[in-house]
């Protein structure tokens, strides 16, 4: 837990819901056991959605689940993609998703509701050429989260654009020595 920064309990709860959905109650228990074994015991039932927890713990949950269940990249992507479906915070701020422009403008606030560090910046919205660019700054925990975020941001875009024909690409990444993570979302 050397890297500082906290996230809302809702994020870890969202992870737990996906693990339960995919691997059942036993799977969730297995993750809790492994976390305990690693010296970071957590009980998902005791997590409060709006309390702050170290983000490193949330990332560790994803890593532990990947190791136990031998998940591949696509599973992690799906975990991120289903995240907004379960998230109480997302549902609460869904009211800002009534238009593409508004959602785009609300990116920083969306991030602040989840994290007490870093930032999500709206960079470019081109409705004519149908693409959006956003940047995540000050977040460098593990490359697995880049995959998770691809799924996550794509779902938000799916909510706003109502289209399944969307693609997302991480065009810049802090793990490739870029100064931030950049995501390009395109739709048809």
């Amino acid at each position: 837990m050397q890297i500082k920064g906290n996230s809302r309990g809702e994020i870890m709860l969202t992870h737990s819901r996906y693990i339960r959905y995919k691997e059942g109650e036993e799977g969730l228990k297995a993750v809790e056991e492994k976390m305990k074994e690693l010296g970071y015991p957590i009980r998902f039932k005791k997590i409060n959605a709006l309390d702050w927890y170290p983000e490193a713990l949330s990332v560790l949950v994803i890593l532990v689940a990947r190791e136990i269940f031998e998940w591949n990249e696509s599973d992690i992507f799906n975990m991120g993609n289903t995240g907004p479906k379960y998230s109480l915070i997302t549902k609460m701020i869904m009211k800002y998703f009534f238009s593409l422009q508004k959602t785009f403008a609300e990116c920083p606030r969306f991030w602040q509701r989840h994290y007490d560090f870093g930032a999500l910046e709206p960079v470019d919205l081109n409705e004519k050429e149908k693409h959006i660019t956003i940047r995540v700054k000050g977040y460098k925990f593990h490359p697995i989260v880049c995959v998770y975020y691809r799924g996550y941001f794509l779902r938000i875009a799916q909510f706003v654009l109502g289209s399944e024909k969307l693609t997302i690409e991480e065009t810049k990444c802090m793990f490739r020595n870029d100064p931030y993570h950049e995501y390009l979302i395109k739709w048809v």
Partner: peptide, 29 residues
Amino acid sequence: LSPLGIIIDVNQAFQMISEYSLIEAIGKP
């Protein structure tokens, strides 16, 4: 529903009648 008619939340009874779980139902038009 979202303004675009995308399902963003369903209750238990909706899951029962539609036979779609929460994760399956959310995100569908």
